[in-house]
Amino acid sequence: MTSSAFCAPFFDSRRMIRSIKEQGYSLGRKRVYRLMGKMGIAAIYPTPRVQQASPGDQGLS
């Protein structure tokens, strides 16, 4: 599991399962999720971009 995590750090638990099954192992999603948390592995994903007002903006009024 560690080699899959380091080769593809953007994998979440569901994609990690697919990768592990392709290697010939059988694990459940909850087990993979628990092991990822225990090992400190987290998927890298884009964060939401919240629109922020410019310093000179006064709003709608």
Rank of each mutant, 00 (worst) to 15 (best):
G24L: 07
R29I: 14
Q51Y: 10
K38M: 06
G56F: 08
Y45M: 03
A43I: 02
K30A: 13
R49T: 09
I17V: 12
S54R: 11
G24A: 06
S13Y: 13
A5D: 04
P9K: 00
G40M: 04
S4K: 06
E22W: 00
M36A: 09
Q58C: 05
R14T: 07
V50M: 05
Q23C: 08
L27Y: 15
G59D: 05
A5I: 08
S19G: 01
M39G: 07
Y45V: 04
F10I: 00
Y25T: 08
K21N: 05
G59Y: 15
R34D: 12
S3F: 07
F11C: 01
D57K: 14
A43Q: 03
A5N: 01
A5G: 04
S13N: 03
S19K: 04
L35I: 12
M1I: 05
Y45K: 04
R15W: 10
S61T: 13
M16H: 13
A8Y: 10
G37A: 01
I17G: 02
Q51T: 08
K38D: 08
P48H: 11
R18P: 07
I44Q: 00
G28T: 14
T47A: 06
S61Q: 12
A43E: 00
S19C: 07
L60E: 14
A43K: 08
Y45E: 02
G40T: 09
Y25G: 01
D12L: 04
Q58M: 13
A8H: 11
V32S: 11
S26A: 09
Q23V: 12
M1D: 02
F6G: 00
G59T: 14
P48W: 05
G24Q: 08
S19T: 05
Q51A: 05
S3M: 03
I17Q: 06
I41W: 15
M39K: 11
P46Q: 03
G28I: 05
